[in-house]
């Protein structure tokens, strides 16, 4: 199949304009296929930002890139103008460490994470293993980019890192291992029956920022996104200079930003902004701050000209 010249030019332009570009189904925030999601998870853990092209919204790109790369599947990763590979190859390259070199970043040092497993969880894991394990199938723990943990039973891969807790061996891929030190696994009763409960101390949490710290950050010229989660009616009464209303459009803009962007959220007293901040953490943002006391504290401690209400 011949490649349309316009499509070829467009692909060349995209690949030359972006040092790292991933042709995928969906986008970073919402990958639309498991293979694309796997590669996004890997890249997110290594790179603060990279370019993605959603082939589902551009059929000519979707077919064109296959011919362009001589590669029949999506996702496809290009780095510095060179085709690197698809999902399988990228996973292998993480294991061998080659991907860090390709991307030009320092490799993550693979350490054996310390994992604590409660006696109840040990017996539940052993039971699951005796039922579903065997034939080279072992227990795996993975920790995704939003620090959600997943337990599964599957064959070992060469890149896996071992963590041994009370005689039970857990296997982790190198990126999961870097997020897993200090994890505690327990079992909890839920309405659906017993389930594993994983507590990960590495998971990013909402951090707090006093109004004084906010003022200092503003004065220092540090770059961050200051978001006001109140209603437009409240903003009409009083607002902090530089704060942007977090409406739907603004939320969409923020969601597309690199995950290490510093986000500072405020509301009237700090309650609503805490909830909004937790949402951004669950989307994978790692530097999310809630302004303690909200605009009310700002009026009292920083700027009395901002009316209280």
């Amino acid at each position: 199949m011949a490649l349309d010249e316009a499509v070829q030019q467009e692909l060349t332009r995209i690949i030359e304009a972006n040092e790292v570009v991933l042709f995928m189904k969906g986008n970073r925030q919402a990958p639309q296929c498991g293979f694309s999601a796997t590669v996004v998870g890997i890249l997110d853990s290594i790179l603060p930002s990279y370019h993605t092209v959603d082939v589902l919204s551009a059929p000519e790109i979707r077919e064109g890139i296959k011919v362009f790369s001589s590669w029949p599947t999506i996702p496809q990763l290009y780095v510095k103008g060179e085709f690197v590979g698809g999902c399988d190859i990228i996973q292998e390259m993480v294991g061998s460490g080659e991907l860090y070199q390709t991307l030009g970043v320092e490799p993550v040092e693979v350490v054996q994470p310390k994992i604590e497993v409660s006696p109840a969880a040990i017996s539940a894991l052993q039971q699951a293993l005796s039922q579903y394990g065997g034939g080279g199938r072992e227990l795996h723990l993975s920790v995704d980019a939003t620090f959600q943990s997943h337990l599964s039973i599957a064959p070992r891969t060469p890149a896996d890192v071992e963590a041994i807790a009370e005689g039970v061996t857990l296997l982790l891929d190198p990126i999961s291992a870097s997020r897993a030190d200090g994890i505690r696994i327990d079992v909890a009763d839920t309405p659906e029956g017993q389930a594993f409960k994983v507590d990960n101390p590495n998971a990013p949490r909402v951090q707090t920022l006093s109004v004084r710290e906010l003022k200092e950050a503003m004065d220092s010229g540090e770059r961050f996104e200051l978001l006001d989660v109140r209603t437009p009616e409240e903003r009409a009464i009083a607002s902090i200079p530089g704060a942007v209303l977090l409406n739907e459009e603004e939320a969409a803009r923020i969601e597309a930003l690199p995950r290490d962007t510093k986000l500072v959220l405020h509301c009237h007293h700090g309650g609503r902004s805490q909830q909004a901040a937790e949402q951004f953490v669950s989307l994978g943002f790692t530097r999310v701050f809630n302004v303690v006391g909200g605009i009310d504290a700002w009026s009292q401690e920083i700027d009395p000209a901002v009316p209280r209400y």
């Binding site: 790369s69 001589s70 029949p72």
Partner: peptide, 8 residues
Amino acid sequence: QRVYAAIT
């Protein structure tokens, strides 16, 4: 890529 190019 050489094989895939042949069967595109």
